[in-house]
Nucleic acid binder design. Structure first.
Length: 809
DNA sequence: TACCAGAGGAG
DNA sequence: AAATCCTCTGGTA
C-alpha cells in the first residue's frame, strides 16, 4: 500500500454526468470510520459487435471507424477483442462510447450496418459494468489513494483517484451504521393518501436505541417537533448527521420513503437523504418501484422476506412473530386516527409505543435476513441493495456474467421477443412422483438424494457448451438422448461445482462450532446463501428469459433425476424394502416385520451399497425415521417422529385457503391417528367439531377463508368466490389489486358460494352457513383420512346414529 | 357429469 | 423476472 493511502469498504456505486461525461462514484466507509466517495472519470461504457457471415472482424472494424458510417459522434474507440463463445474463440469489435446515455442510440445506428450480425453486452447497466470490469467487490475492500478534495459533499473524504485498487477482504456487518425507519400516518379512511393525510410520527432505530419524532403532542419519550415539516427536517438531519450507511424499512420502497418525500414537498421541503445531498427519487418499476437514496444502501425488507420465508401473510407483525416467537404491539388503522385526534397525552404515547414496536421489529427482521443477503452479495458480486431486490434467476445470472467476464466468455444476449415466445412454448418433463401406498403405514425410513439437481449438473457436466460435442459422443448420454462432453469442463458445472464444494466445507465447519456462537450465525448465513444459489441453477437453465437458457440441459437434468430415483426405488425393492412413496429425490420405505433400530440399520446398509455404485457427487442420504405415517395421495401425507412431532405435507392443514376450523379438525384427526394408530379418537374429534359448528359456538375468525388475488380483477375469466366478493368490494370503494388477500365467511342461503361470501367485518355468528362448513370444510379434509378406516360421512355427523359396526375398529 | 380456471402446495 | 408435477374447489354447460 502506498504511504498515505488507506482501505475503505464499498457500500454503493452509481454514476453522474458532468459536462456529458460519466463520473463513477464509489461510496463507502474507510477502516478508520470516515465515509468516503471515490470518483472515477476514466471508465467508459462499451459493447461488442459480432461480424455477420461474409465479413471479417477487421472489415467490420474498418467500417465502424470509417467516417461515412457517420459513426456516431459518441464512439470514442473501436478495437478488436477475442472472446470465447460456446467453446469457440471468436473475434468481435469492441465499441467504446463517451457516455452511458448514448448506448441506446449508437446501438441502433450500428445495428443498421449490414456487416453487424449482433450486438452483445449492451444492456449491462453502467455501474454494474464498472463493478465487473474493475473487480470491485461490493462490501469488499478498496485501496484508496491520497488525492483528496474536501468540502464538496457531506461525506468525510472525497477521493479523485480513478479506478480503485481492490482487495479480497470484506467489511464486518457490525461495522455498518444501520438505521431502521417507520412512519405513522393519520389516515381518514381507506388507504393513506399522501396528498391529504399527514405523517404524525417517525420511528427510528439504530444500534443505540429507538427514537420517536412527533409534533403537537407530548408524552413519554416522544421528541417533539414544531410541525410535520419540522419533523421531516429533523429526520433528514438525523440521517445526515448520523451518516448512516444502511437505511432499512418494511415496505419502505413503495410506502414510507415516497410518502415522506411527498409530505416534505407539501411542506415546501425537499427530502435530501443522499450522501451527495441529493433528493430522494422514486423510480417506478413494472412490478414494484424503488426509492433511490444516493450513496447509502437502501433496503426494503419486504421483497427479500417474501422470497426467503414461506408464510401465510407477510404483514410486519406476522413476520416478526414468526422469526422471534414474540408478539408485537398492534393498532388498527382507525385506532391510530382516533388516538391522534383525541389529542390526549396517553393516546399519543400509545401510538408512539406502536411506532417503536414497528421500527424495532423491522430492525429485528433485518438482523435475521441481512447475514444471508450479505453472503449473496459477496457471491454474486452485486451491490447489497440490488441483491435485496433480485429474484433467484437474476442472482444466478449476475454470478455468471461476472464469471464470464473473468474467463473471457462472451455474455449471451437476452432472448428477443420471438425467441422468448418460442421458448415459452417449449415444455419438458420434470421430476418423477410415485403414487403412494395409501393409508396408515408404520416404521418408515426416509432417504433422499443430497442436492440432486446440482450434483447431476456437476457430475454429468451439463452445460450449453458441452452439449453434443464431437469429441466423445458415446459416453455421458442423458436419458433424453443428449450427450455432454467429458473432456472440457462446462462453464456452469465448474462454477456450480465450486459452490457445492464450498458448502460442503462450511457444513463441516458448522459441525465443529459451539451452538450460540456468532461464528455459527455467520457460517449458517454462508451455507444458506450457497444453498439458495446452487438450487437456482437448474430452474435458471429452464427459465425462458435466461441468457444461458438451455432446454436440453434442464430436460437432461430432470431426466437423470428420474433415472436415479427410479433406480433407488428398484434397488430398494430388490433388497426387500417396500417403497411407500417417492417424489423427485426422496424415497419413503419400510420392511415388513422390521422395526426401529433394525430397520434403520438395514437402510444404512442399503445406502452404503447403493452409494458405491452412484457416480460422482451423487449420493443418497439417510433422512429420518417415522414410527407412523399416513399417505393420502401424491404430495399429500403426514409423518410422526419418535419424539411425537408431526410434519404434514400438502394437506389442508398446511394450506392458506382453508378455514381454521377445517384445518384444526384435520390436524387433530392426524394427531390421533398417528399417535394411537387407530381412528376412534379421531372420529370423535370430528363429531365434536361438527357439533360446535351446528350449535354456532364457533367464533367467526375460525370460519374465515382467505384467498389471494393472483392477477388483476379484470383479467379473471371465472367467477370464483373470492373474485365475486372482490368485485362487490370494489363496487363499494375498496382498493382491490393483484396480491390482495380476500377474506370471507360463507353466509347461509342458497345459490353460489360466491354470492354468499361476506367480508369478515360484516360476518355474524348467527348468519354463517352451518351446512357449508360441515359438508365443504370439515368433512372433506377429515374424510380423506378417516375413509381409509372404513368411516363414512354419516358416521361423523354427530346427530346421526353412530354405526355400531365401526365401534370394533 | 365433464370440463375448466384458479389456488396453492411439494420437491 | 427459476423449473414441473399434483390435488382439489367452485362454477358452468
Amino acid at each position: 500500500m502506498k504511504p498515505g493511502s488507506r482501505t475503505g469498504f464499498v457500500h454503493e456505486v452509481d454514476y453522474i454526468s458532468e459536462d456529458g461525461n460519466p463520473v463513477i462514484r464509489v461510496f463507502g466507509r474507510t477502516e478508520d470510520d470516515n465515509s468516503f466517495v471515490s470518483l472515477c472519470t476514466e471508465f467508459k461504457p462499451y459493447f461488442y459487435c459480432l461480424p455477420g457471415p461474409g465479413y471479417s472482424s477487421k472489415q467490420l472494424l474498418k467500417r465502424i471507424l470509417s467516417p461515412e458510417v457517420s459513426m456516431p459522434a459518441h464512439v470514442i474507440e473501436a478495437s478488436l477483442e477475442k472472446k470465447m463463445r460456446l467453446g469457440d474463440e471468436i473475434t468481435l469489435v469492441r465499441v467504446t462510447l463517451d457516455s452511458p446515455r448514448e448506448v441506446r442510440s449508437s446501438r441502433s445506428l450500428l445495428r443498421q450496418i449490414p456487416a453487424v450480425e449482433e450486438i452483445f453486452e449492451k444492456d449491462i447497466l453502467f455501474k454494474r459494468r464498472f463493478i465487473i470490469d474493475t473487480g470491485i467487490n461490493p462490501l469488499g475492500a478498496v485501496v484508496l489513494g491520497n488525492k483528496t478534495v474536501t468540502n464538496r459533499w457531506p461525506v468525510d473524504i472525497v477521493y479523485e483517484n480513478g479506478v480503485p485498487e481492490c482487495r479480497e477482504e470484506y467489511l464486518h456487518a457490525s461495522d455498518l451504521r444501520v438505521l431502521a425507519l417507520d412512519i405513522e400516518v393519520a389516515c381518514r379512511a381507506g388507504l393513506p393518501n399522501p396528498q391529504l393525510d399527514p405523517i404524525i410520527m417517525i420511528g427510528l432505530a439504530d444500534s443505540k436505541g429507538t427514537r420517536i419524532l412527533s409534533y403537537g403532542r407530548s408524552g413519554g419519550d416522544i421528541e417533539i417537533c414544531e410541525s410535520e415539516g419540522d419533523m421531516i427536517r429533523r429526520f433528514s438531519t438525523i440521517v445526515r448527521e448520523g451518516d448512516y450507511d444502511l437505511l432499512l424499512g418494511y415496505n419502505s420502497d413503495s410506502f414510507d420513503l415516497p410518502y415522506l418525500r411527498t409530505r416534505a414537498r407539501k411542506n415546501g421541503l425537499r427530502l435530501c437523504l443522499g450522501r451527495d445531498l441529493s433528493e430522494l427519487t422514486y423510480q417506478p418499476g413494472s412490478v414494484m418501484g424503488r426509492s433511490i437514496i444516493r450513496g447509502r444502501i437502501n433496503i426494503d425488507l419486504y421483497p427479500p422476506v417474501r422470497r426467503m420465508l414461506n408464510l401465510p401473510t407477510y404483514k410486519l407483525s406476522e413476520v416478526y412473530s414468526h422469526l422471534s416467537g414474540r408478539e408485537k404491539e398492534e393498532l388498527e388503522v382507525g385506532e391510530i386516527r382516533d388516538l391522534w385526534s383525541s389529542g390526549r397525552e396517553e393516546d399519543a404515547v400509545s401510538i408512539a409505543r406502536y411506532c417503536a414496536s414497528d421500527v424495532e421489529a423491522t430492525m429485528y427482521i433485518a438482523m435475521e435476513v441481512l447475514p444471508t443477503l450479505i453472503e449473496l452479495s459477496k457471491h454474486t458480486k452485486q451491490l447489497l441493495a440490488d441483491v435485496a431486490r433480485m429474484g433467484q434467476s437474476q442472482m444466478v445470472e449476475w454470478l455468471l456474467i461476472r464469471e464470464a467476464h473473468g474467463r473471457g466468455e462472451l455474455v449471451p444476449n437476452k432472448p428477443t421477443r420471438t425467441e422468448l415466445s418460442r421458448r415459452r412454448r417449449e415444455t419438458y418433463e420434470g421430476g418423477y412422483v410415485l403414487e403412494p401406498r395409501k393409508g396408515l403405514q408404520e416404521n418408515i425410513v426416509a432417504l433422499d438424494f443430497r442436492s440432486l439437481y446440482p450434483t447431476i449438473i456437476v457430475t454429468h457436466n451439463v452445460d450449453i457448451s458441452t452439449l453434443d460435442c464431437d469429441c466423445c459422443p458415446e459416453d455421458n448420454v442423458s436419458p433424453t438422448g443428449h450427450h455432454f462432453c467429458r473432456r472440457q469442463e462446462g462453464f456452469i458445472p465448474s462454477i456450480l461445482g465450486r459452490l457445492v464444494d464450498r458448502r460442503k466445507e462450511i457444513k463441516v465447519e458448522l459441525a465443529e462450532v459451539d451452538p450460540g456462537s456468532p461464528e455459527l450465525t455467520r457460517l449458517n448465513a454462508m451455507q444458506s446463501a450457497l444453498k439458495i444459489l446452487s438450487n437456482s441453477f437448474y430452474g435458471y437453465s429452464g427459465y425462458p428469459q435466461a441468457r444461458w437458457y438451455s432446454k436440453e440441459s434442464a430436460e437432461s437434468v430432470a431426466a437423470w433425476g428420474r433415472e436415479y430415483i427410479k433406480m433407488a426405488i428398484a434397488e430398494a425393492e430388490a433388497e426387500g424394502f417396500q417403497v411407500i412413496y417417492s417424489d423427485t429425490d426422496s424415497v419413503f420405505m419400510t420392511i415388513q416385520g422390521a422395526v426401529g433400530t433394525e430397520l434403520v440399520v438395514r437402510a444404512m446398509e442399503f445406502l452404503r451399497r447403493i452409494n458405491s455404485s452412484l457416480p460422482g457427487d451423487i449420493e443418497l442420504e439417510y433422512q429420518g425415521f417415522s414410527p407412523r405415517g399416513f399417505f393420502v395421495s401424491k404430495k399429500r401425507y403426514a409423518l410422526i417422529s419418535e419424539d411425537g412431532r408431526i410434519t404434514t405435507k400438502g394437506l389442508e392443514v398446511v394450506r392458506r385457503d382453508w378455514s381454521r376450523i377445517a384445518k384444526e379438525t384435520q390436524r387433530s384427526v392426524l394427531r390421533s391417528i398417528l399417535e394411537d394408530g387407530d381412528p376412534s379418537r379421531a372420529a370423535e374429534e370430528v363429531r365434536q367439531a361438527i357439533r360446535r359448528v351446528s350449535e354456532r359456538s364457533v367464533p367467526v375468525e375460525d370460519l374465515v377463508i382467505s384467498t389471494r388475488m393472483t392477477k388483476t380483477l379484470q383479467s379473471y375469466d371465472a367467477d370464483a368466490p373470492h373474485v365475486a366478493l372482490a368485485k362487490r368490494l370494489k363496487e363499494s370503494g375498496e382498493e382491490i389489486r393483484k396480491g390482495s388477500n380476500i377474506e370471507y365467511v360463507v353466509r347461509k342461503g342458497s345459490g353460489r358460494v360466491g354470492d354468499r361470501a361476506q367480508s369478515v367485518s360484516e360476518a355474524r355468528k348467527k348468519d354463517y352457513d352451518i351446512d357449508y362448513y360441515i359438508e365443504n370444510q370439515i368433512l372433506p379434509p377429515s374424510m380423506r383420512i378417516l375413509s381409509s378406516f372404513g368411516y363414512r360421512e354419516e358416521d361423523l355427523r354427530y346427530y346421526k346414529t353412530k354405526q355400531s359396526t365401526l365401534d370394533g375398529f
